[in-house]
Design a protein around this nucleic acid. Structure first.
Length: 462
RNA sequence: GGCUGGAUGGCAGAGUGGUCAUGCAGCGGACUGCAACUCCGUUAACGCCGGUUCGAUUCCGACUCCAGCCUCCA
């Protein structure tokens, strides 16, 4: 039984899709005005695991993840650079897709862009204005009227009146209520914008997601996800806009991934303590980064550090050392084993990846035990290990690829082979001094030699 | 100040009302010319104070501390 923690009810619930066998899921994507940082990567990887697993469970998943390609930050950055805002967003969308591929994040089924849905956005705002749920202010901006939506706060568990107290939001002369938020912003005539019943302007951030999710998945759909920092106000506002306009429940299940911290502080652009994905990928393998991001439960915070990356590196080395020498391609994966059952039970329990990993380590130990005596069984277990790990998007390389190269180290394989051959000769002559000298030489090249029953293997030192 | 969540062995990180997480590190052994890899064994934990219970790290309450949100943010 698949259970998912629902932020709306604050409980783990048995998951039941609206339509048997099908799942519609919408996740708030990126505002594209810079390179992805590790916090973005966490969100992308978290929901990549979710969708991969839901598909494995046999669901027909429609995964929608939007791109916010119109926003004040984008306009400001474009202005600084002296370029068209669309050139800026095109560039960073391309970079985002590159980073996603590196991290083995599968593309969503639909990737709507805000600028591609202006019509739907305007229609939704129109409906809200007609229903007296929104109003046009003197400057052409249109605001949502929070007071007219009694359920406001049901997702973030905030009380309407408490939101009023000490509200840091200035009561502008434009807003009727400090809690109101903008749906449509008027733009200067020479600025970026679109025509609307309220004049030339551009959409507010929150309405984009309401319009795009409804457009792609319908008024009521199964799962809405995003970072926990979006819960308020963004997701709360989405609920308000959508339910006020459609008079029906918006998303059934709300999933929020936990934050990524650096030195126990939230990593964010505004704190200027963020690491971009591409900068980390210069020194660490993508799979190492991906492991780090799923080694903790998706709802827990992750504290990023060099040490945690090193730990993920040793863990992957253990996996690949185990797979090294197995013949997996021709082996049939063991099915219905206790390992597989335990793995699925862990993932069924709100995508408990740490628990799932503990099962993978049990398989590793079993393989290492059986390698000598029961090679066929070891191969079958190896195939199982790879199959299950692939559901998490890891162990997608071969042992040789992972163990003998990485982004930071480049070795001359021919030279290594020559040195190993020379050492083999020395060992045959029992010239241990020479053998050790050669091993030291290899070590200086960051090459670790491993002597086995059938010759000496090697890997790079990470 | 309000709301939400958390506090687990040296570190990372799950989970459970009474017997094991798991990984890294440590210790002892096996393998090895010595190592590395690997295997076997092993040490070690549940913030603090009460309550419920035959029994609580696990449930309930108070306290302390930490984090996130309340403002753009995945």
């Amino acid at each position: 039984m698949l259970k998912i923690y629902n932020s709306l009810t604050q409980t783990k619930e048995e998951f039941k899709p609206l339509v048997e066998g099908k799942i519609g899921i919408y996740v708030c994507g990126i505002t594209t005005y810079d390179y992805l940082h590790l916090g973005h990567a966490r969100m992308l990887v978290a929901f990549d695991v979710v969708t991969r697993y839901l598909r494995e469970r046999g669901f027909d998943v429609n995964y929608v993840r939007n791109i916010t390609d119109i926003d004040d930050k984008i306009l400001n950055r474009a202005k600084e650079n002296g370029e068209l805002f669309s050139d800026l967003t095109d560039r960073f969308i391309e970079a985002m897709h590159e980073d996603e591929r590196a991290l083995a994040v599968l593309p969503p089924d639909v990737e709507p862009r805000a600028t591609g849905h202006i019509t739907e956005i305007v229609e939704m705002i129109k409906l809200l204005v007609e229903k007296d749920m929104a109003y046009r202010a003197g400057n052409g901006d249109v605001y949502f009227s929070v007071m007219n939506f009694p359920d406001y706060g049901k997702l973030s568990k905030k009380k309407m009146d408490e939101l009023l107290d000490g509200a840091r939001i200035e009561v502008g002369e434009l807003k009727k209520d400090p809690r109101d938020f903008v749906l449509w912003k008027s733009s200067p005539d020479d600025g970026v914008g679109w025509d609307s019943p309220w004049g030339y302007g551009r959409p507010g951030w929150h309405i984009e997601c309401s319009a795009m999710s409804t457009c792609c998945l319908g008024d009521n759909f199964d799962i809405h996800g995003g970072g926990s920092d979006l819960l308020f106000p963004h997701h709360e506002n989405e609920v308000a806009q959508s339910e006020a306009s459609t008079d029906t429940q918006f998303a059934n299940v709300w999933m929020h991934n936990g934050p990524l911290r650096v030195d126990n502080e939230k990593m964010s652009k505004s704190l200027d303590n963020f690491f971009t994905v591409r900068e980390i990928l210069e020194t660490y393998d993508a799979e190492v980064v991906r492991h780090l991001l799923i080694a903790s439960h998706y709802r827990s915070p992750i504290n990023y550090s060099e040490q945690s990356l090193r730990q993920s590196t040793s863990i992957l080395e253990r996996f690949y050392n185990c797979l090294n020498g197995l013949d997996i391609d021709s082996a049939k994966s063991l099915t219905n084993s206790r390992f597989e059952k335990a793995f699925f039970a862990a993932m069924d329990d709100d995508f408990n990846t740490p628990e799932a990993f503990s099962v993978l380590f049990e398989i590793v130990r079993e393989i290492n035990k059986q390698k000598e005596g029961e090679p066929i069984l070891a191969n079958q277990l190896g195939a199982l290990l790879v199959r299950l790990a692939n559901l998490l998007g890891i162990l997608q390389s071969t042992p040789a690829e992972f163990l003998r190269s990485n982004v930071a180290t480049d070795v001359d394989e021919e030279e290594v082979d020559q040195l190993i051959a020379a050492r083999k000769q020395a060992r045959a002559n029992k010239d241990w001094a020479l053998a050790d000298e050669i091993r030291d030489k290899l070590a200086a090249m960051k090459v670790v030699v491993e002597d086995g029953a059938d010759g000496s293997g090697w890997r790079i030192e990470r």
